[in-house]
Design a binder for these strands. Structure first.
Lengths: 196, 196
DNA sequence: CTCAGTTTTCAGACATTCCTGAAAATAGAG
DNA sequence: CTCTATTTTCAGGAATGTCTGAAAACTGAG
């Protein structure tokens, strides 16, 4: 690996993490190198810095492009393709979350929708469906929340994140004002009784 | 696989998703079966329903326990171990997020902290460190937010999620009130200039 | 068109992960 | 303690995933 020590440490770590993130080691390393690079790099730069084969770089870049995590950027007077990661780290995280949602959440959501439309054949299936319904409602709630938040501009997002649970204080106050004597709170989401 | 069609469809899907979630197919399937089961199941129930080897079930359960995703529950008059998933789906999601954070975020956070304390040897390393600093700040912001939110009780959490970006409206109003003539908004987080 | 520079594809070598059956370890009953 | 039911470990075969070099495909210049 042809990189100064600090860079190499980062790249190696990202490579290892890659496997926990649904991409292989090489793909993680390629991303890491691009992320810390001062300028856009071409495939051969990556071959040189990582000491891996040209074809491996090609496949890695293809995968990163399918994740929208790297951008191809033309360089005047050079026929080769050059690649960068976006400068804005917030946009990177947005992309990452969107792509993971697409791969990890959306397929499950449509599977759940499909199975919830079916008629259960017996008590076992009926109970299963009740559980799926809980799961479906929760995922819907989370994805609706994210779809809403995702539209915020970065500045507002930072403000909101910095507030943390302080925003919940507002709700507490609201609840205290509107609470009816003897009124019940919202019930937790569950169609299933506790299992003995 | 010894399950009614609807259950089987769910279990197969969860198995496939498992690989995108950092566990293998079998572990995903075991979890799915436990999730929709009406009662706690013992290892042999899983062998029967999934048609996999006893030892594979043992390893899978061990992994799920290391994720805190299944609970061992004694059954009176039976020496065997029985397993369930929690009934409360919110607690399941909390556990899942906590465990993924532990595996996917925390190691990166400490790696970044370590590398940010080092002295860069040259311009390349200096630029790399600036990028790492951006990444570190963002991850700190997100994890601090999550640590804060995670403490909320389920009811409040649901309220907050349902509000979505409406909470941001409050900030907008606040900003409008306190805005000074000619005053600038918060700057986006970046220690790096744009790359040409 | 031809040609050189560049990227992509892909068969198969190599590496890793997964799964099983057999054997060992564990735990409770008697 | 012994005996039996149960769980865990683990070597190695099966299945997947990764990486490479060679060849094919593409692309723009001349």
């Amino acid at each position: 690996m042809n990189l100064p020590p600090l860079c190499e440490a980062f790249v190696l770590h990202f490579g290892e993490m890659g496997s926990r993130w649904g991409v292989n080691r090489t793909v993680g390393q390629i991303y890491a190198v691009l992320f810390i690079a001062e300028t856009a790099l071409c495939a051969d730069d990556l071959v040189d810095r990582l000491g891996i084969s040209r074809s491996n770089v090609s496949m890695g870049l293809k995968e990163l492009q399918s994740w929208n995590l790297v951008r191809q950027r033309p360089v005047a007077g050079d026929r080769r393709d050059f690649f960068t990661t976006p400068d804005d780290i917030y946009s990177i995280v947005r992309t990452l979350v969107n792509e993971r949602k697409k791969r990890e959440i959306d397929p499950t959501l449509s599977m759940l929708r499909e199975l919830l439309m079916q008629t259960p054949a017996n008590a076992q299936e009926q109970h299963a469906q009740a559980r799926l319904k809980d799961m479906h409602e929760l995922i819907e709630l989370l994805t609706a929340w994210y779809a809403d938040i995702e539209k915020l501009e970065t500045d507002r997002l930072i403000q909101l994140l910095s507030l943390g649970s302080k925003v919940a204080k507002i709700l507490e106050v609201k609840d205290r004002i509107f609470a009816l004597p003897g009124g019940k709170g919202r019930q937790p989401l569950s169609s299933t009784p506790n299992r003995g």
